[in-house]
Amino acid sequence: MKNIGTLRAADHILHLAWTPAGDSLAITPSTGDILVADATAGIIQKFPAHGMGNGASAWFHGDLATCGFDGKIRWAGQEWKPGRGMIERVKTSPDGTHLAAGQGRALHIFDKNGPTDFSLPQLPDAVADFVWNPAKANQVATVGAGGARMWRLGEKEPFARFDWGGASILVDWSHTGRWLATADQTASVHVYDFPRDYPLHIQGFESKVQALAFSADGTRLATGGSPVVTVWPCTGKKGPEGAKPIQVEGHDLDVCAVAFSPLTGQLATGDESGTLLVIAFETGQFRRKRSRLASGISALAWHPTLPLLAIGHVDGEVMLLSLA
């Protein structure tokens, strides 16, 4: 592992996002300016902070879209305030044509000209998180109290729904489009198998799952919350159901961030103490590299085409680490 460079933002790093080409990294701290760095950790651009705090940013048509607790979205010199509630994150559709933002009970959908009729302004529950279907760019899932709902752009009723009564805080959709996974307010994960229309409830976690991610090939789901990282197999007819997960130890405190490399398939995980694990999977086993960094890890993002990992820390530092 080689430290390529570091930089410092104003506060706890909430989110890191590389451009699709990997030439720029968006760095969103919880408060303070949102930064854009190059692949050597040089700051090349700054965007103003959102009042009362920032939400997660996203690249949209080559420019950075930012959002925040002030209920505003800023992109390419424009500012939209679609409602009064806070906006915790914006996400770009896999084909790059649309930008979505959850705000209270609304899911706003924008294109490069601004708000679109695809928006869903009156959902039954507040949108805690949402995710685009990587395999079908016109599908998006929302989660919050009650479960998950799947929507096609242009339709006002969900084409699928999974109701289970509790609430979810995070959602991810596998790149193959087969699996949808939620991390819940309780110490559990729900995994939905679309072809089988089958919901799986995975319990027994030591604490609330704070991070989850699918591998780029959709064959693994990593979950982190306690000091143990659990990696679920998502292959075969039943996926994680009845399967024995891989459990990786080596963290000192609760895991806050997990990310799979789209290039190598390695899994990076970071915890509150600053311990970083980089896990390589081989047939039936795994290898683990462990590093102790200076402060707690809050966000991770792999470069799209290089063995380069961006690590965001609770104190605002961002480190670029080469794993070549």
Binding site: G51, M52, G53, F69, D70, G71, R84, G85, M86, G104, R105, D125, A126, A128, G144, A145, G146, W164, G165, G166, A167, Q185, T186
Partner: peptide, 17 residues
């Protein structure tokens, strides 16, 4: 738009079903 105010929709859920 007060700098110290966060607006949010109520999001009720039951911890134990």
């Amino acid at each position: 738009d007060h700098e110290l105010v966060i607006n949010a929709d109520e999001e009720l859920f039951e911890m134990n079903n």
